[in-house]
């Protein structure tokens, strides 16, 4: 609905009336009989157009599988931040969320959703967070980053915000959020700034705008996601442990049966039979059942360190 050149911030601002309208529509629909129910799939997104396109076919498919539950239509709702998403869940407008571990943990810990499937997003069942500097950088360890700037990707990012921030804290460093990439940093802190995407993250480091950057290993290894030559000029100084890539969550809006139905529907998708459908669904390779470990991780993930 807007040109691709419009910055994401503006897009988000423009999305507000739409979201409100959709919320109202959801309220209206929820009061309708079972025969006229809409299955709503939601996600936090700063790229609504792309994400909408990626989510829509899967929403339609799952709705068809859950028709017996009275869902005769499907819809995709995208929210700019966790707060609006949680609010929408609370209002009963969202039935199904597909998110990474951080958002999933927030929703689970808020009692708004429970995981129903592990999502092999971009072919990954799990991934790690990486912290890297330029090869010619004097920085060798995380501790060397004190008084320097680090670029994270996104405040909702698990792999490029939560995990590296945890790592830096665990290395005994204090974080300081910066307004701009060039803002100065207190000497006793590590300044951080969100690069919005992996490419900015790499280039900032490469152009020495920031000293270090943080990305997940999926993005790092993907050949087309990052330019090769800057990447070759980087040295990784930290790798986190592996974490689940993404989850499919049933919100508290769904009834128990409906949750089971959603879980069943999602897990019914075969990587071979529904390869196309899955590939379009954020390059998902397959959907696998959630293990106890996963559930525990989501429930116990320490969210306090986040601002």
């Amino acid at each position: 609905m807007t040109t691709p050149s419009v910055p994401a911030m503006m897009t988000r601002l423009l999305l507000h009336p739409t979201v409100t309208l959709l919320c109202c529509l959801g309220l209206m629909l929820s009061s309708l009989p079972a025969s006229a129910k809409t299955l709503v799939l939601a996600q936090i997104s700063d790229r609504p157009k792309k994400d909408f396109r990626q989510l829509r076919p899967m929403a339609d498919h799952i709705q068809s599988l859950m028709a017996h539950q009275g869902y005769d239509r499907a819809d995709v709702e995208l929210f700019p931040d966790i707060e609006s998403l949680m609010s929408a869940i609370r209002q009963g407008r969202v039935h199904w969320v597909s998110e990474t571990a951080l958002t999933s943990a927030k929703l689970v810990q808020a009692g708004l959703a429970s995981p129903v499937a592990l999502k092999w997003k971009r072919g990954q069942a799990e991934y790690r967070s990486l912290i890297y500097v330029r090869k010619d950088s004097p920085v060798e360890t995380l501790a060397d980053l004190q008084g320097r700037r680090v670029a994270f990707e996104h405040p909702n990012s698990f792999s490029s915000y939560y995990l590296p921030a945890i790592a830096l804290k665990q290395a005994g460093l204090n974080l300081q959020q910066l307004d701009t990439p060039t803002s100065s940093v207190a000497p006793d802190k590590v300044g951080y700034i969100f690069s919005r995407n992996e490419r900015n993250n790499l280039l900032w480091v490469h152009k020495s705008i920031v000293t270090a950057g943080s990305l997940n290993d999926g993005d790092w290894q993907h050949p087309q996601r990052l330019p090769e030559s800057p990447k070759q000029a980087m040295r990784i100084i930290h790798r986190s442990a592996a974490f689940p890539r993404a989850f499919e969550l049933a919100t508290s809006v769904l009834s128990r049966e409906e949750r089971q139905a959603l879980k069943k529907a999602l897990l019914s998708l075969s990587p071979e039979e529904h390869a196309n459908l899955l590939a379009r669904y954020e390059q998902t390779e397959r959907l696998t059942p959630v293990t106890q470990e996963h559930t525990t991780l989501l429930q116990q993930l320490d969210l306090s360190i986040l601002p």
Binding site: P181, R196, L203, W204, K207, I209
Partner: peptide, 21 residues
């Protein structure tokens, strides 16, 4: 005018997108 905000954020990818366009 399109580059104003990306420049503020030093959003190189957005800038690249604009410029490459």
């Amino acid at each position: 005018s399109h580059l104003s905000i990306p420049l503020y954020h030093l959003d190189l990818s957005a800038i690249e997108k604009q410029l490459s366009l």
